[in-house]
Design a protein around this nucleic acid. Sequence first.
DNA 1: GGGGTCATGTAATAGGTTACATGATTCT
DNA 2: AGAATCATGTAACCTATTACATGACCCC
Lengths: 207, 207
Amino acid sequence: MAGKRKVSNLLALAVLSYLMQRPMHPYELGRTLRENGDARSIKYNHGSLYMVVQQLTKAGFIAEQETSREGQRPERTVYGLTDAGRAELRDWLHELIAEPQHEYPHFVAALSLIAALPPDQVADLLKTRLEHIAEQRADSQHQIDLAAADNVPGLFLLEEEYRIALLDTEAAFVGRLIERIADPATDWMAMWTHFHRQADRLSPEQP
Amino acid sequence: MAGKRKVSNLLALAVLSYLMQRPMHPYELGRTLRENGDARSIKYNHGSLYMVVQQLTKAGFIAEQETSREGQRPERTVYGLTDAGRAELRDWLHELIAEPQHEYPHFVAALSLIAALPPDQVADLLKTRLEHIAEQRADSQHQIDLAAADNVPGLFLLEEEYRIALLDTEAAFVGRLIERIADPATDWMAMWTHFHRQADRLSPEQP
DNA sequence: GGGGTCATGTAATAGGTTACATGATTCT
DNA sequence: AGAATCATGTAACCTATTACATGACCCC
């Protein structure tokens, strides 16, 4: 698999994939992305889109196809996929599916530094987190329901299913962690409490 | 919670947290980060570290403390936490724990565009993915075992535990997806297969 | 016909990664 | 003594995000 992609922004992958179906102009790409809900899976930014299109053009993956004008609107440049673009799309998707990447979710970072806060505060914060997780889960489920009502085939809902699976796992982990913090039998609790009792390091009461 | 942090790179969070314990110079921060294994949870980059230290200084969260020289090595500037820095650390951690962020894992992006590849290819790729996931899981477990042998308290292994939970969920999801693709009773399979049978869009045999 | 919002794009800025540089130890 | 690696930092280059612009349509 390619060591380093010419264009690495995942937005470019979506662009390639949409252009598989038919040539489009950038604005249309953006609209499709939003309407399609793919912006939930791939970070979308109006500005970035034009950047990515430029990059893809320079890399030879897409090419200016025609330049049309409708009414008195500004000119719109329509781009189409090249053969190299088709190949890149296939190769990139292959890589993304077959080779998991090491990523850096925010919550992992938080967990790795959690000892800097006193345990009782952490417990409260985790409870709040649980509520938010429930909301996000409901939201994902809602997306699925909406789409299903629209007869969207399940093939296009896999991301949301996966998201829900992850959220459930996170909720279970957080719930269990709250319990462990509350349970005085947890071996590392003594140390943690003690550490924050003596040096009231981070939180000397705030208003 | 603060709408927009002055410094948003998570590396800065690690810096603040280390400086809680004692003042250090940048290189030492980097070394600690790597030795400590926190680089598994927070993306570390030699260059970024200096950038972040600069940003933190400008924002008033840390301050130059002294400038020492040892042997004939270049001067090293030692930084310490300010009160504002302590507050920022606490507030930031609070936010990270209590409020889950919407993130964009690569695999989610892949899933959302997976229909662009033909199903049999996808099945193979997913099997490969399963192997890699198993490796990563073993690696995380290994980290835990190593640390445990070193008497590191479980409090500092939560990230790895969490990672393992996520990996297990992903493995289960991928396994199930492979099954669904193999099962002709899966409702959307007909459509998917058909689509790629008629227009042999992406993969006209490659050498 | 004036005020929103849609359509479309460019430019300025900030953020992060890679490459470059250079003296000091350590190893063989 | 020469090679390799550690320690330390700066600079150049990409990338990405925000802000700025501007004409068209649509509604009241």
